[in-house]
Design a protein around this nucleic acid. Structure first.
Lengths: 339, 339
DNA sequence: CTGAAAGCGCTAACAT
DNA sequence: ATGTTAGCGCTTTCAG
């Protein structure tokens, strides 16, 4: 009979086999339940023989706790997201939660995914680098469902978020590039809808302006390797090409490096300076050696967990916006301090 | 009251508000159910106003279908695994399944995770690059739960697996390295427990032997960047260091490149040849430019999906072992054919 | 300490 | 086409 699974062993089956009531079986698998060691042992033994495992589904229905946390990530090709998911899911597992994963493409509509997630009665929802319509934000709030934006924020303060100081990072990079003597800067943006790209650019531009520097050239890499390579090619083909490139994330900076160094034969740190944002693992590899802004990934995940914990304990807790600070790490892709 | 979520809207609430029976509400949300367009509209309107969403939990309990697929990955720092998970979860979502994710460290014991997964009544289980105790293999089979090993196989043919031709890949790399004139080869292994590393090495060694070449030097990188760098340092410090390195995966090959090129100032493709296995995205970057064996990731995921589909339709279907073929892609990290 | 009974939110016969 | 009823597998009063 196609598609028909064998019926799973139920607590009732165990009860019958062990000669006890069904509730005894339940108690045998409930920490701190009133049950004699004797029957507990007996029940557990029979259960093991029969291959009984309490169903989370039935349990969830009655306790109204799914122990599920929904996580939405914008794809996993960017190692930064992969690393976040890795950390996050581990910590959540340790806390006794299971992860319901939704990997979506950047331009997917989140609405159907949100509907799905809510139908699963997740106990909390983490959106990594993606946003939430105000409609759902409101709805989640109404149903006391904790929602957390990680590495993304929205204007309204009604939804919790954990980000790093994108504005400050952009500004520090402007300072750095100016300090080492660059004249013609350029910015390669992520997507226009992204608060992170926006803030990084904003911080960058403002500091440039404050210091009376020329505004940067600009192109968009759409957060994609391919597009960032194209953007780099376009910028370098300009009549007055930039002598320094600030890319909104490491993946795009590495793409720029691949074009400038790999394709055009330039030497990074001499002919051109390239700066990224994130500090993904490979940026530290000798072969890449990218100067970048360190987003404190571990701290961000830690903070996310902390926020989740308080919201889980007290659903009425007010949303919080955490902004963690990062730091510039100077490597070989930028030229040394001018003498 | 801490921790108490607002009770979710139920079909009964909607029924009352819409002046219909509870089953009418159920039918309004069931494709192709016998219900008049009029009441369906009415119910849906009221449901939308109340924010009603059918509970997957209650649905699962009664239909005995969780629409959940468990996926176990050995961490996500290796982009190859991240890419697999990305592909796989997308396709599964499209098929109407949700993904329950478990990211474990390589040396974690899978037993507690397996227990958890089974309690969720997943409809199938995919283990990426990790193995299954014969005990669970048997238990899953008994309960008609499809299990699939992806990028890993076990000796017993009782569990389905999808791999690429690791043996053939290792052999082809031996041929290639010999053909371009290398004398002293070395192999950097993954973990000893890994069938993939084992098969790649086996194919490599056998071909070397067949062609009367010296057996390779050997060290282990434990699938880790750090360890692979250490292994490379050890090998290169030998009295007769190797002139060519075959690493059991791309991450370790890139680590080797980082040491040989970045640290020791060698030029890859001239002073030494390095070959990887997987063909992760970054291996194709000009800055890395790694010669490697292409594991057909898309085809492997496709095949995994196909296997899953048949097993899902017919739980009694016999396990299958799919071995897909890959191909060598020659890039700059190996020296050109000798003239 | 243990069993009986109620019911979590829903689907699927079964009636009407 | 619609309502009524009986569970899905479990936790949790409530008696005993």
């Amino acid at each position: 009979m196609a598609g028909s699974h064998k019926r799973a062993v139920t607590s009732y089956d165990v009860a019958k086999a062990a000669g006890v009531s069904q509730s005894a079986v339940s108690r045998a698998f409930t920490e701190g339940a009133k049950i004699s060691p004797t029957t507990k042992e007996k029940v557990r033994k029979v259960a093991a023989e029969l291959g009984y495992r309490p169903s989370f589904i039935a349990q969830s229905l009655i306790t109204r706790r799914s122990t599920l946390i929904g996580i939405v990530v914008p794809g996993l090709v960017n190692p930064f997201y992969a690393a976040i998911l890795d950390e996050l899911s581990h910590k959540l597992n340790v806390m006794g939660y299971r992860v319901l994963l939704f990997s979506m493409y950047r331009d997917d509509d989140t609405t159907p995914i949100m509907e799905e997630i809510l139908r699963h009665r997740v106990e909390a929802l983490v959106l990594v680098s993606s946003s939430l319509s105000s409609h759902f934000a409101q709805e989640c709030q109404q149903m006391d469902l904790p929602v957390l934006l990680l590495n993304r924020k929205v204007d309204s303060q009604s939804v919790s978020s954990v980000t790093s100081d994108n504005l400050g990072g952009g500004a520090a990079i402007a300072d750095f590039l100016l300090d080492i003597g660059h004249q013609q800067l350029a910015f390669i943006a992520g997507r226009d809808t992204s608060s992170t790209s926006f803030d990084r650019e904003m911080g960058f531009r403002q500091r440039l302006e404050e210091r009376g520097a020329r505004p940067p050239l600009r192109d968009s890499g759409m957060w994609s390797i391919e597009e960032a390579m194209n953007a780099t090619r376009r910028l370098m083909a300009l009549p007055t090409p930039p002598d320094a490139l600030f890319c909104a994330n490491d993946m795009m900076a590495i793409a720029a490096l691949n074009v400038a160094v790999g394709e055009m034969g330039m030497q990074a740190g001499r002919d051109i300076s390239v700066v990224g944002f994130d500090d993904i693992a490979m940026s530290n590899w000798p072969l890449i050696n990218l100067t970048t802004w360190v987003q404190p990934l571990a701290a961000m995940v830690e903070s996310a967990i902390a926020v989740l914990k308080t919201q889980l304990e007290n659903p009425q807790a007010a949303p919080v916006q955490h902004v963690l600070k990062g730091e510039l790490v100077v490597r070989g892709s930028t030229r040394p301090q001018r003498c």
